[in-house]
Design a protein around this nucleic acid. Structure first.
Lengths: 169, 169
DNA sequence: GCAACTGCTTTTGAAATGAAAGCAGTTTTC
DNA sequence: GAAAACTGCTTTCATTTCAAAAGCAGTTGC
């Protein structure tokens, strides 16, 4: 019955699932960027290469972190969906973002979402998670989704402001 | 002024610091195991090898996650200490442990601490962080440290109970 | 004085990473 | 209706990282 795990420690097991430089970025792009397709995920800020992306997606599906289904609108498209397991990472993402903002040289535009998540706190996270459950698991949602759109709008505001500033400067 | 970061995203930057299979385990052993020396850290549950440990310790020190000082009692001993940056990971560790306990095949003895951290909540984390600041940064502490000892005792209780059970079985 | 312990380093082979190009099929565009 | 763009990958190959094992120059305890 023993799997090939290094140990049964929860932190170790978590690291075995997403303790690498890319998995959590893929999940980030799905959660905060709303990305569902391979080519969308390929256009990450950090420039993941296609072989690594393919490999990680396979791993994440194998581990139950994602599911993969056919896109009815396009015979070659696959749709990747979050599972409850992955949606449950939202609070960890929020903490991680807050930690990074505090201690690392983050850029303003790429940390504005983290700031809003921090400000919003557990209530916002919870609402966001419900929206993700709606989007990815088909659960019902009270009212229209709004959290990701709000985060996205804030991001675009910063980008637009910075563009204006750099013209002036 | 640009460093060689893949992006300024706080989650990405966090992963660049400890997004690998070992760094967080080293930090875990320092936080929850009270380990301060190389040979102590070498005896991890997961069996890190000495070259990897040496490499990661160097990286973590370079990144400000740890400091390294001489042990006055032994000319060859080095003492590794947590920094505020690393102590601030305690809540993330707690969340990660809770997540792992919920979704991964953890062992009872290695997840009892995670359970107690979860039960204790932010108040316990905060107390624990103060104790770590006392131990590693020399800050003053109200009352004697107790959190890690409590976690450790709970772990040993489970180990002892399991030993008894396996004799009976 | 000798065994055990200190924090590593070295060696060597295996595995993972990453850039670039390519591919068979599908859909869109004009 | 043909060409261009797009689909999710795969392949190739060079480079980097990982990992087990052994070793090492000291230091310390007995």
């Amino acid at each position: 019955m023993k799997d090939d795990h290094r140990s049964g420690c929860p932190i170790n097991l978590s690291l075995e699932v997403f303790g690498d430089k890319w998995s959590l970025l893929i999940i980030r792009d799905m959660i905060f960027g709303g990305k569902r397709h391979f080519r969308e995920l390929l256009r990450s800020q950090e420039g993941i290469s296609s072989n690594i992306l393919a490999d990680r997606l396979k791993m994440l599906v194998d581990e139950g972190m994602l599911t993969k289904t056919d896109d009815p609108t396009h015979k070659q498209k696959a749709i990747y969906s979050l599972t409850e397991m992955t949606i449950a990472l939202v609070p960890i993402m929020a903490h991680l973002g807050a930690w990074g903002r505090l201690y690392l040289p983050v850029s303003e535009e790429l940390s504005i979402r983290a700031e809003l998540m921090e400000t919003g706190g557990p209530d916002l996270w919870s609402r966001f998670m419900d929206e993700l459950r709606h989007e990815h698991l088909g659960l019902t949602l009270d009212g229209p989704p709004r959290v990701r759109a709000t985060l996205q709008a804030a991001y675009e505001d910063v980008v637009a402001r910075k563009a204006r500033e750099s013209v002036v400067a």
